[in-house]
Design a protein around this nucleic acid. Structure first.
Lengths: 209, 209, 209, 209
DNA sequence: AATGAATGAGCCTTCATTCAT
DNA sequence: GATGAATGAAGGCTCATTCAT
């Protein structure tokens, strides 16, 4: 699962070759220089194409950013869904959420890095409504999974609005730190520590019985 | 402890009145519009001053951003240190870290919001070395506190590079969510839940004895 | 041989029309107002184009100045070379140098005026190395011509570092004065007086035998 | 005869100490950076004074430039006059002009350098009339000296508007080259070669009789 | 006389976007 | 579809000058 793979998975075929290349190089530049500091001209030079071609494929710069962002979101969601599909206890669900998060960041570090940086820009831009809708949908789905009737009531005591932060907060924090280069150990090395920590944080007080 | 207080605490006196005002209004605009989208002209208009005055006090836009960022960092550190000073067990230390983090964000939401957004900009800008130095110093201090001889060995099993994320990750995640408006409960409401979750995540396996 | 001719000679073709026009109008304004006092906006207005077009063609103001400067240098060198090619005695060479200098200034007064004013700016700017290289090359070529084996030893007694000033100094001085408007007679009127004066200054003491 | 001497000669006394210092440092900066590129703030920093003090003494930047320029002009004229006073033949007069020019530049290289660069600025600025008047006066004086009744008619054949260039052109050219660093020999080394060359250029055709 | 914070017009430059070819 | 010259609004920043202290 490489960066290239993600793109070829999402935008397959020969006709999309230029589109993939623009995506790839734009992602690289956005991460290295920052989104605002990256100009269309830089992307053009990196792709050895014309500005016209970029506008033809993405409409404008915000379209390019949004395209990258939602591509990342979708790919991440796909992995999460596949992990969740295999989980049948609450505990397994928590593990699935943490593992899928950690594994995806570890496999797609550039896309993950971009996601962190671009969220604010997308929130302010013309695609903010689409983002809000997706967020709601995802939260609803997660909530439905966690509160499904076949699940026990291990999470009863946890305030709803705190839930996601308790589950994913530590993993996200470590992933950010890793992406910034301040720690060396790849996230997957700690996938079980992080999943277990999440589970301990969340499951009802009487952990040992 | 309001925003105004923070500034008057850090830059007291009559002569610094304009400087404080620029700081205050710039903070507001950077958070509302984004750092890059905020122009010097907007700040000037908001402060009813001249562009020259802004440059006189801060050198350039990056200097203004860095000034805000390091002011926030210092204020946050001060609160953390004061909480840590009162803690004498490892558990109390973990609680101090989480509580000080949560309390500070709750009290200085604008400064906290800015910190999240500005870190990348400062990392890339001319003050990146100062930031790196401060980060190192802070991490060393925290590490020294946690591994002081009088402390027990409750943290023995936790990988060093994971430690901070396990302690602060959930609090940070919730604070970010709160600042974005997607949840309503103020962080301090959950300060003990978050501290206890951190402690459970970190302390050695036998939680119940 | 007018200004227009010089430009069409150096930058021929339809596609370079705007580039030539910017060159022409910039030359005029730089001479009238001074280089620093001329703004890009003035040039834009004079050319009835956009600032973007100017930057597209020349990179920045210094690039425009350097472009003009080196164009002038090249054109002047071309005339000098063509005159020197027809000279076969040392005396004819001295005459060729003075005549080509005087004739060029007389034909391209605006370019000559600019050359005098811009040299310092180019010396300080990002093209200083290119200028130094060109200067060296030109001096070496002149020196080779003057000391070629077929030439006599009329110049033996003249210190090398003084040579060029003795040959061209008077012509340059008069040309500057003419360009400043303080004298009226066109330089070509005095081309032979100046050439003869240079020859007398340089040739060995026993002038009359 | 050092730079310091020139200033103490022209602006003596303790009360003028700051004024001399500003002059000195401004001269240095104008030569190193160019007049337009030198800011009042740079001069202030170099003198360790306040901008107010500079404005108090010179009115504005143009006043400072003009002050330096006319100081140089006066000092140069003084030397020329003293040399001319000792000359009683036409030949001695030519020698006096060339020698005084060369000696002054050699003794006051910074002032000379400034003169070359500042002439254009003064010509365009608010002191242009004063400069024109001084130029006229000086030319009239020189002309009167050269055409005084007691002088012979060695210069009869030389066109009037060419005269000054023939006399001083070579010396000026060499001095400029020396100041730019492209040659090493100090001008005074060649004072007699240059004077003799000027005399040969000017005196009537029959040089040897 | 001296100070230096404050002013603000104006400069160079950038860059997303368009559109004729 | 592709190209890249052209556009021009807008931004960061400079700096000569003023003036209250």
């Amino acid at each position: 699962m490489e960066t290239a793979d993600l793109l070829e998975r999402c935008y397959p075929g020969r006709r999309a070759e230029l589109k993939r290349d623009i995506f790839r190089k734009a992602l690289k530049l956005f991460n290295e220089q920052g989104i605002e500091a990256t100009t269309i001209e830089m992307i053009r030079a990196e792709c050895d194409t014309s500005v016209g071609a970029i506008y033809h494929h993405f409409g404008n710069k915000e379209g390019l950013v949004a395209g990258l962002f939602f591509t990342a979101l979708d790919d991440q969601a796909q992995l999460r869904d596949s992990y969740l599909a295999d989980a049948d206890t609450t505990r397994a669900g928590i593990y699935a959420l943490v593992h899928s998060y950690v594994d995806w960041v570890d496999n797609q570090p550039e896309w993950a890095r971009f996601q962190y940086h671009a969220r604010f820009a997308v929130t302010k831009g013309p695609f903010k409504d689409e983002l809000a809708t997706r967020n709601k949908t995802r939260n609803r789905q997660l909530w439905e999974w966690l509160s499904a009737p076949q699940r026990g009531d291990e999470l009863k005591g946890v305030p709803a609005e705190l839930m996601l932060s308790l589950i994913i907060g530590q993993a996200e924090s470590y992933c950010r730190t890793w992406l910034s280069g301040r720690v060396k150990g790849r996230p997957t090395v700690y996938r079980d520590v992080l999943a277990e920590a999440a589970w301990r944080s969340i499951s009802s007080g009487e952990v040992c019985n």
